[in-house]
Each structure stands twice: as structure tokens, then as C-alpha cells.
Design a protein around this nucleic acid. Structure first.
Lengths: 334, 334
DNA sequence: CTGAAAGCGCTTACAG
DNA sequence: CTGAAAGCGCTTACAG
């Protein structure tokens, strides 16, 4: 491997000069610089980011841990973080926790050992305060993404209550009264907020939210069972709101299995939606979050915090948009 | 930040001993080790992976660059790489090239600067030999994933010809003669192989492959236009084979737009398929690649190569499976 | 059973 | 306009 010493020798200068040419950190005579650049070229020298980082105690890298990089919303957020980081010359180290708090903790550990300048974290569902308290001791900045905390952290997510309220009002105005909420794992802040907002909105509409019409479960199997139970009840729901892509998939699967026809038998709305959702018939009413901007904002909050560690934590909530499609067009059939 | 010096002082030993306790690299007296461990605990010391890596000239990390982490097949491959790496205590640095050769080159550069022990690369569509020749000079091992090269590299991908042949035979045996192949960007090795196999299989079946029934294009717009042209031809296709998820989406969109009914009007098969494809009606015949195993194998090839740089490069081809579903059930309607 | 010291490849005051 | 030297936080022969 070529090091600065070799380059310096070839150019007949000191390693200081090579370093300064490389980083533009002080004036170097034209002719000297030429020689150095030529030597760099000839030796195909590449700076050692490790040695540089160690000396500067700064790696120009940030870590990003997401609970599921395959989900469309997260994939978009990752892109948002990536582009913002890249535009600032920052390398992104990406890790997946696969919704496993233990893997999340290991990823945090691995990234901190690598001395990332800061970390963005979309916490796993069951993640307690463990991974977070890790940060109390060390002064690596942290930004929470998507799944927010009540504690004062720098964090960015979406507004969850408002769209639920709007969806409920829309459905109720069409005459729906028995609306099924597939809430999923309410340990996840996002899902908890949506669930709470649902209860409130229903109550506000003069409808008592019924337990069997709110499916709360941390496992896929239980979610499906809960949906099934609701659909086969004496007074089945005429509309469904699914709180995430995965939950929507579970619900749609149960609906199809039972031979229910969308629109005719049941209205349907979901958060996040599917990749290629346009291909579904009927097209689905979807609460679309500005996922790219969520990621970009997270990266901005983080670089700001890295530059200046003083000042109070900021919470940013971006507004999702609701795309009304055919799946919520008709009123209840009953 | 706590360093080994602080720990050593607190424990009343030398930093050598701290290091050896940490790494288990030589015997340390029980009582001494206890003191060191206690000091580590008390100071919440964390090893500096950078300094360690620099000294050992080995980072215990590998890089993975994919062209699109959001695609279901790639997401699975990433998981395969990730788990295999994690099981060996190797950290994965992940980058997205977004099918952009320039971003790919930058990612390669960034990862090499970070001294990854090796690199796995699923090349971007338009990527020339540029990024690869980078590796000729440096001795960082490289494994090609999914999109293979004719040159002798360590690489792992899937068998592309056999499934195309099988699909064509299946469709022909049902009476289909005008089969549309949506081949996409044939600069991508995977797609080129599928396209070639299609021509061969058609010819073998005694059918002349027609140019307007093989859509080759590097841009989404042109792909859609090509599909449209084929569907509106005097003698339109009675079956479609899409060579990737994105291409399938384009084709399905055009089919829906024209009001064509699947099965009745047109048969459909695709490579890779969609997340939640089960929800499509009719369910789609899909060539499913063992994506997780592709990723895992790539990681294994790489760690093997890191351990032993001698020996000839290996090419591994894994076999996909074809899942026949309703979308190719019926013969042509004409 | 343990310590003192060299050195990994850089950056950056200090000095001229 | 440029160089000599200290030091970032570790690992690892060498020595006892």
C-alpha cells in the first residue's frame, strides 16, 4: 500500500507538504504542488481514512440503523439520509436491526466503536431505553427517526394523529360506523399514536371504539387472527384502516381469503402503502409520508448537532398527505 | 473519551495487559484480569476500532454496494450478506449506487479509503470496467454479486438461461406463440443472459423471435413505449415474460391501462416478483431466485478470499425456482 | 506472569 | 514557502 512517506520521497518533499497539498490546508508553491500531485498519481496513492480519522478524532461518517430497510417507507428514508450525507462529503454506515432490540444494540455498539460522528436511529419495536441510555455516557450525537420518543431528543417523524382523524371523519361521513383499525405493535410510538388518535376520533364522531375492532398485536400470527375474528363477528366492519404496509398486507390477505370484495363489501385505507401499489385494483387510499424528507431532515439535524452540541433538542414533525383512491369511494353496503 | 491508558492506570497495570485482557491474546493472572475488567466497567471504556484497525491493518469490516437496496431481491441479498458477516464478527458497510456508475465509483472509493477488508459489488447497469480496474492496483478482495462478469472474478449469481427456457417451453406447450419478452437494459449481465436464452428457446421451439416482441431499453419511458407498441400491434402477444420486478410493473401497468384481462387476454410471468405479490389477482407465475443465499454465498466467498488470496477465482451460480401460478394457467384466447 | 517501547499512517502546532 | 517532530489509541514482538 502506498503511504504519504512514499509519495513524499518521490516528490522530494516532506510528508507535511504532501498532507497540505492533499487537504489544501496551507499554501504550497505551484511547482512543489505539481510534483506532489504527480507523485500521488504515479503511486496511485489513496489517503488512509482510518489514520486521518484517528488523528483528527473525526471520521466524517455517520451511522444509520433502521428496523427494516426493505420496507418502502424506510428505503425512502435511507435515500434521504444518504443523499444529504453524500452532499456534505459524509459517508453513511448503514445497519439493519430487523426489529430485534438485541441486534439494534449490537449495531449501536459496532458503529460507536467505529467512531461515527453521529447516529440516526429508527428504533426496533421492542427496543427499551437500553440503546438510548448508551448515549448518555458518550457524547456522540443521536437523532431519532420515524419512531419518536417522549424524551427530549433531536428527532424527526411524521404527524400521526391528524391523518387518522381525517380518515375516520372521511369514512364516517360516508356512513361507516364499524371501522376496523389494524394497529399492530403499539409499543412502536408511531403505531401507538395512530391507535390513540383513532379512539379519540371515533369518540368525537359519537361512535364507541370497540376492542374487537382494534387489532393490537406484536406478532404477525396474532394480527391475522385478530383481523379474522373481527371480520367474522356478528356485526363485521364495513371499513378497515391499516396502520402500516405490513399490517395492510395481513388485512388484505384475510379479506381476499374470505372472498370479501373491496368497495362492495368493505372500504380500505392504509398508511404507507406498497411499492407498485398503482397495480392494485381497486387502488388504495393511502396516507403517504414524506419519507425522503424525513431522512433528509434527520441527516440535517444530525450534522447541525455534530457542528454544535449546545442548544436544546429539536423535534420535527412532517405532515403526511392522504391520497384518496377508489378503495374508500363507496359507503357501507349494509 | 476513555482510552486504554485510563483503564490501565485505574487497574494499576500496563496498557499491554489491558490489551491482552480485551483480546484474550495472552495469559493474564486471574486477579489482574478481574481488576482490569472492573476498571473497564467503571470507566465504560469502549475499544477504538479505528486505532485497532490501523495497528492490525485489518478492519474486520466489508463493504457492500448494491444498485438498488429497495428492490425486494436486493433487500434479501443484503440480509444474506449481513447475517453471514455478523456471524463472523464482521461489520457491514452498505452503500447504494442507485444504478449510477458515478455514485458506484464514489462508493468504491469511500469504502476502500475506509480500508474495508473486502468488497461485494452488485454493479450498476451502465457501469463499465472502471470500478473494477480500480481493484487491479490494490489488493482488496472483490466479489461480484448478482450481476456477473465474463472475466475471472470471484462471483455469485443465479442461473438465468434455464428458467427462461423452461418458461418459454411451458408457454409454448399451452399454445402460445407470440410471447413478449420485456428484457429491459441488456447492458446488465443478468438481463442480457435472459434475453439471449429467450431467443434461443424460441428458435428451438420453431418460433422466430420477433424484434418488436423483445423490448430492450435502458429507460423506463422507452420500456413502456415499447410494451405499448407491442400490445397494440396487429398481432399482439398472448403472453408476457418480464425480466425483473421493475419491468413487470411497467408491463402490468400498460396491460391494465389497455383494459386487458390477465389470463383471459394475456398470460404473464415475471422474474423476482413483488413484495406482497400474494395479494395480486391473479397470482403471478414467478421465477424466484434464492436471494438470501446469493448474499450469504457472496459473503462466504469474500471471507474465504480475505483469508487466502491465492487460488483461482470461483463463479457460483445458484438455481432459481419457478413458481407456477394462475397467471399462466390458460392457453391463448385466440 | 507482566511491562516498556516501537510503530500503524496520518495532522498540525512549532519553528525557521 | 517548507520541514522535523509529537501524538491520535491501539497491538505486538522483545525482554525479563
Amino acid at each position: 500500500m502506498t503511504t504519504m512517506v512514499k509519495v513524499a520521497k518521490l516528490a522530494g518533499v516532506s510528508i507535511s507538504t504532501v498532507s497540505h497539498v492533499l487537504n489544501g490546508t496551507r499554501y504550497v508553491g505551484d511547482e512543489t504542488r505539481e510534483r506532489v500531485l504527480k507523485a500521488i498519481e504515479e503511486t496511485s496513492y489513496r489517503q488512509d481514512a482510518l489514520a486521518r480519522a484517528m488523528r483528527r478524532s473525526r471520521t466524517d461518517s455517520i451511522g444509520l440503523i433502521v428496523s427494516d430497510g426493505g420496507e418502502p417507507a424506510f428505503a425512502e428514508m435511507i435515500r434521504g439520509v444518504e443523499e444529504t450525507a453524500a452532499s456534505q462529503g459524509i459517508t453513511l454506515l448503514l445497519a439493519n436491526s430487523a426489529e430485534d432490540p438485541e441486534r439494534e444494540a449490537r449495531a449501536v455498539e459496532a458503529l460507536l466503536e467505529r467512531r461515527v460522528d453521529g447516529l440516526i436511529l429508527a428504533r426496533a419495536a421492542g427496543s427499551g431505553p437500553g440503546a438510548l441510555s448508551e448515549f448518555a455516557n458518550h457524547d456522540t450525537p443521536l437523532v431519532l427517526m420515524d419512531r419518536l420518543s417522549d424524551d427530549p431528543y433531536d428527532q424527526v417523524g411524521v404527524e400521526n394523529r391528524e391523518p387518522v382523524k381525517e380518515l375516520v371523519e372521511h369514512l364516517v361521513s360516508q356512513g361507516h360506523e364499524r371501522i376496523l383499525l389494524v394497529a399492530g405493535d403499539t409499543r412502536v410510538a408511531t403505531l401507538r399514536e395512530r391507535h390513540e388518535a383513532f379512539s379519540e376520533a371515533m369518540t368525537a364522531a359519537g361512535i364507541t371504539p370497540l376492542d374487537h375492532l382494534m387489532v393490537i398485536a406484536s406478532e404477525a400470527g396474532k394480527t391475522s387472527a385478530g383481523i379474522d375474528a373481527a371480520l367474522s363477528a356478528a356485526e363485521p366492519p364495513t371499513a378497515v384502516i391499516a396502520c402500516s404496509t405490513v399490517l395492510a398486507a395481513a388485512a388484505l390477505q384475510r379479506i381476499q381469503q374470505r372472498g370479501l370484495r373491496m368497495r362492495e363489501d368493505i372500504a380500505f385505507a392504509t398508511f404507507d402503502g406498497f411499492a407498485y401499489a398503482d397495480l392494485f385494483e381497486p387502488q388504495l387510499t393511502t396516507v403517504r409520508q414524506p419519507a425522503f424528507r424525513v431522512g433528509a431532515t434527520a441527516a440535517e439535524l444530525l450534522t447541525k448537532r455534530i457542528a454544535d452540541k449546545s442548544g436544546d433538542p429539536t423535534t420535527v414533525r412532517l405532515a403526511p398527505t392522504i391520497e384518496y383512491r377508489a378503495s374508500t369511494d363507496a359507503g357501507p353496503s349494509s
